[in-house]
Design a binder for these strands. Structure first.
Lengths: 200, 200
DNA sequence: GCTGTTTCATAACGACCATTATTAAACCGC
DNA sequence: GCGGTTTAATAATGGTCGTTATGAAACAGC
């Protein structure tokens, strides 16, 4: 019973996601959010809670809708294919939308006021989870002989994430897809092969 | 004539730099800045102008005081030494101070409100200048035969900057110096040598 | 057609933002 | 010591922040 909701909650969340993606957590104001969602403030609060909860839901949606290339990558047969899929997937996603470039896990909060600290930690934690999964995948690759004994799965995972973060920063700065593909390509040149010690 | 200034302007600028370094441009409030500088608001305004001008001066100081490893690197004899010096220099700087980790050129503004757009552009421009200088150094290395004909100076420079940015993000997230040195080391494994085509 | 419930839009809330008027205090040259 | 000038500290400015109280409107069940 009661009055029906007149707006699409999923659509409003998508709109909020775009704003956060573009301006970050603290840079996005409710004026921005309501304008993008086409919905008044109290509607956002009743549907999603406060700003922090709204961001968390937007982040979850971001993961589900745009980061599918991550679990995809982990299932590929070789560590090199895993790395390549992640790098080119990141380049593609970070340059796909002109009005919100880069990665929400980086744009969300990097440095900010004390109020944004919980959100910053959420993003750090999310990135750490991804890095751990990649490391475990590389440990498997090493056990399978896909990576040489000299390879260090933890360093490779941290390196791969670092390049991904760097690509996100550069994408947000306006770098072309083509340039970033060059970055990804360069990163892959270092990839250890099974026979040689390290490098191509 | 007139009353003498009772605080050290250089010291106040150093304090402001630390706050911006830690919290970014928008995350730093005048409450933070005055507390750190030990000086009231009007003193900061009369000495440095408004917040944007203060940030620009802090950024200039950051460059002069902490980024000396950049011009240093460009003078080294081989492109590999250049890259190594930049990478390990970034790791060192980005983990040197526990209360303000990472890089001001990244922490300053990545994504923010429209008000921060001019500052964001300043940082983008600064990073672009660095990348250009590195690229030109690599072009010289190619001409000198230090880099092979197959090497792409533009891609190498963009890649080097990407790894540096990634290291900055990870340093801000709390990664240890040791871990980040692993990232730098991994990045250097891809470095083209004069004789082989690419890679080690 | 009521009653109870939920959503809607408007507008207000206190807090904090960057910025600046204002006034008192400290200094130099005379 | 007085006049002119600069700085210091306090406090106020208008604006925007995130959040919510308020009352009208729309619905379901009886």
């Amino acid at each position: 019973m009661g009055r029906h909701r007149e707006f699409d909650v999923e659509q409003a969340l998508d709109a909020a996601l775009c704003v956060f993606w573009r301006k970050g957590y603290e840079g996005a104001s409710y004026a921005d959010l309501t304008a993008a969602a086409g919905v008044e403030r109290p509607a956002l609060y009743s549907a999603f809670g406060n700003k922090e909860e709204l961001f968390r839901k937007a982040l979850q949606r971001y993961y589900e809708r745009f980061l599918h290339y991550m679990p995809e990558a982990l299932m590929l047969p070789t560590s090199r294919e895993v790395a390549a899929h992640i790098l080119y997937g990141a380049v593609d996603l970070n340059t796909r939308f002109d009005d919100h470039r880069g990665c929400l896990y980086i744009n969300g909060v990097l440095a900010g006021s004390d109020e944004a600290e919980p959100v910053r930690q959420v993003l750090i934690e999310g990135r750490a989870i991804a890095e751990r999964e990649i490391r475990e995948r590389f440990e498997r690759a090493k056990a399978e002989g896909d990576l040489p004994e000299s390879a260090r799965p933890d360093a490779l995972a941290a390196f791969l994430m670092a390049v991904t973060h760097g690509i996100a920063v550069q994408a947000k700065a306006g770098f072309s897809r083509q340039t970033l593909e060059g970055v990804a390509e360069q990163a892959l040149m270092s990839w250890p092969s099974a026979d040689s010690g390290q490098g191509v």
